[in-house]
Each structure stands twice: as structure tokens, then as C-alpha cells.
Design a protein around this nucleic acid. Structure first.
Lengths: 143, 143
DNA sequence: CCTCGATATTTCATGTTGTCAAGCAACCGG
DNA sequence: CCGGTTGCTTGACAACATGAAATATCGAGG
């Protein structure tokens, strides 16, 4: 049993909190550079990989589908996404990134500095260690 | 130079993204259990440590001071926080957690499972390693 | 085939968070 | 005491988020 007041655990949690905060900052900042909000950037990143029904976007974002309607509306209004009918189910609308949307998502990924800057100080061996620790932390050790 | 497409770096970034997502989920969930939003919970956590001027809350949250007004308004309306005059500067209002606010913040901290659950699988030595790597990643090696 | 319940999306009402500009009160240096 | 700055609030507005109700479609059972 890990006592809640364990100084080491507390410190790690604090550090993770800092990582989370910084990640968000950079994400919002990168999105803003393309005149996107964080939510719009997230959806666009999803759609740039594959088209998907509104309902699935909501699941990924962990929010209500009615919310997604508005976000996709705004992406669509700017020509970054579009709605297509699903040939298999006429209830479903498939949201997809347009050409321009895919390009924007690409730029976004590139300008997301968090990938390189903070990790640059770590050697490959350290990065491997970090990867393994994060994996275990997230419980991906199961198979 | 670290190539952007480095598979290891990419994987670590993905893992961090997952950590960030999970952290947020749990934070919002824990806040919701006390009928608080994430922003309210964050401010309450700050205030439970020490009273501070509105302006400083805004700095910590990285948002406009006018935004903080509303959040503290809602906390105040529920008796979790209060505004006190600053004896040294009559322009300043010190926001402080009430008794009940402090108690709520305490419960919040406890119900924030992220502290223990995911780290439980790591040995103390591994946690130390993780701490050191995170520290270096965040550039705290500077002294 | 037809109806009934379930599903996918949207619309509407409402609340919270966030920005920005404008306003007021209080501080401070000359 | 005056003028500029600082701290906070207010107002208008956009985005995000939820929940309830409306619409259209699907699918299974009668």
C-alpha cells in the first residue's frame, strides 16, 4: 500500500501536473497560431487520420454529440472539414477533413513543439526508460 | 538534431498525450463529484494553500483577471471562498478559501486517484528514475 | 409489411469559461 | 496634487459543454 503522503509519489504527481499544464499551453498556443481553438484542433487531428461519424468524435472527446455538432460546424464554415453521408446508414453523417483541413492538421502537428524541445535533453537510452515507465504507469503491460 | 519522425520520440510523445488525457479525465471527474468544474477546483486548490489576490490567480491559471472574477464569484456564492480586503493595498482583494472550501479541497485531493493508482505499479526506485527524467524534461536541471 | 423501440444527429435553452475593451478606485512618483 | 499605472469589475461576445426534445432512420418482432 502506498501511503498518500509519500513524498516521492507526491513529487512525481506534481511533476506530471506540470507536464500536463505545459502540454496544454503549447497545444492551445499551436492551435491559436492557425486560428483554431483547442477543441477544433483536436477534432481536426482526428479527422485528418480518417473520416468518422459525429458520434465517434464525441466518444473520443468524451463529450456529448450535440457539442460536436457545433465544433464541426465551425470547421466546416472555414472549409477545413465537411460532412458526408454514410452509404451504409442514412442516419449517420461522416465528418471528414478537406484537403485544406488535412494540410492544416499537418502544420499543426509540426508546430507542436512539445514533441522535440523538452525531450531533446534526454539521451535515447533515457527516452527508452521513460517510455517504459510511462507504459507501465498507464497499465499497458497487460498482454 | 532529433528528427521529427524518430519513432521512439513519437512514442514517448504519444504516451505523454495519453497521460495528459487521463489526468484531465480524472481531474474533471473528481471535481464533478463535488459539483465543481475543473476551473473552480483548480482555484479552490490554490486558495486552500494560501489566500492570494485575484491577479495572482489569473497568473497561475494563465487567463485574464476578468475571468477569475466569475470563477471566484461562483465559489463565493457557494460559500467555498470569500474576498477579503488587503490591508496593505486597498485596490487588492484577497481571495481565500472558507472553512468549508478548505475541507472540500481536502476531499478533492483525496479523491484524485491519479496520485496513487497509476504509480502503484512502480517500485520506489522506478519512481525515482521517473521523477529525475521528468525533472530533466521540464528543464529543472538548471541551477 | 408495419409498428415499436433504439440510434444518429440536430436544435434549443442554459451555464461556465475565456477574451477584450471600458470603467472605477486606489496607489505612487514627480 | 496630478497624471500615469495598477487591480478589479463590468459588459458584450464567442466557444464549449450539458441536457431535453425533435427528426429521421434503422432493425427486429409480430
Amino acid at each position: 500500500m502506498v501511503p498518500r503522503t509519500d513524498a516521492l509519489t507526491r513529487e512525481v504527481v506534481d511533476l506530471i501536473g506540470t507536464v500536463v499544464a505545459r502540454y496544454h499551453e503549447e497545444y492551445e498556443e499551436a492551435a491559436a497560431k492557425h486560428s483554431l481553438t483547442g477543441a477544433q484542433a483536436k477534432v481536426l487531428a482526428l479527422l485528418s487520420r480518417e473520416a468518422m461519424p459525429m458520434r465517434r468524435i464525441a466518444q473520443q472527446l468524451k463529450c456529448e454529440p450535440s457539442n460536436v455538432t457545433g465544433i464541426v460546424d465551425r470547421l466546416e464554415a472555414r472549409g477545413l472539414a465537411e460532412r458526408r453521408p454514410d452509404p451504409d446508414d442514412r442516419r449517420v453523417k461522416l465528418a471528414a477533413a478537406t484537403h485544406e483541413g488535412t494540410a492544416t492538421a499537418e502544420h499543426l502537428r509540426e508546430s507542436l513543439g512539445f514533441a522535440r524541445e523538452p525531450l531533446a535533453d534526454l539521451s535515447p537510452a533515457e527516452r527508452t526508460t521513460l517510455r517504459d515507465l510511462l507504459r507501465r504507469m498507464l497499465g499497458e503491460s497487460a498482454p
